[in-house]
């Protein structure tokens, strides 16, 4: 109960300081969407853009074309182009799609970026060896950053 003590200082401050990221197993999906921010904070769209393009992070452009990211080489054709997704989907829906696209699109080829269980032979990143601990592909913060960037993709 001691943790409640800072309440006296100010509610705004507390929510920032005491918030723990939602654990991958605790993400609440409603029709594939996730209302609640995983970090309790707004994401950083500029970093989200980096996550989308980086092979070691989201590598989203491996499968999706994004016109706004023309400076990043090689966009794939597996999924739909992401141009205009900020109009087509709400923030909650985009958070759901990035966290676990299979909740929105049954059986989709799109990987689940914020999930740690249910995998067959999960590996330790790209080493080919077995994973000892499975961590989500993206952190809660990275997911929020990606969502913030996707929200900027308006036609």
């Amino acid at each position: 109960m001691k943790r409640l003590a800072p309440l006296a200082i100010g509610a705004a401050l507390v929510s920032a300081a005491a918030w723990a990221d939602t654990a991958p197993g605790d993400v609440a999906f409603t029709d594939g969407a996730v209302e609640q921010s995983l970090t309790g904070k707004p994401g950083d769209a500029a970093n989200g853009r980096v996550v989308l393009g980086d092979r070691g992070q989201g590598n989203c452009v491996a499968c999706h074309q994004v016109s706004e990211m023309a400076d990043v080489p090689w966009h794939g054709e597996i999924g739909p182009p992401l141009d205009g997704v900020g109009d087509r989907w709400s923030e909650a829906e985009l958070r759901g799609i990035v966290s676990n696209a299979k909740m929105m699109f049954d059986g989709t080829m799109m990987p689940s970026f914020y999930k740690v269980d249910g995998f067959i032979r999960p590996g330790d990143a790209y080493t080919g060896n077995a994973a000892e601990v499975v961590t989500p592909i993206l952190s809660a913060e990275q997911v929020e950053d990606v969502v913030a960037y996707l929200m900027t993709l308006k036609e």
Partner: peptide, 9 residues
């Protein structure tokens, strides 16, 4: 190819 799926090959 299996390694690229972040799997134990």
């Amino acid at each position: 190819c299996i390694r690229d799926t972040r799997a134990e090959t």
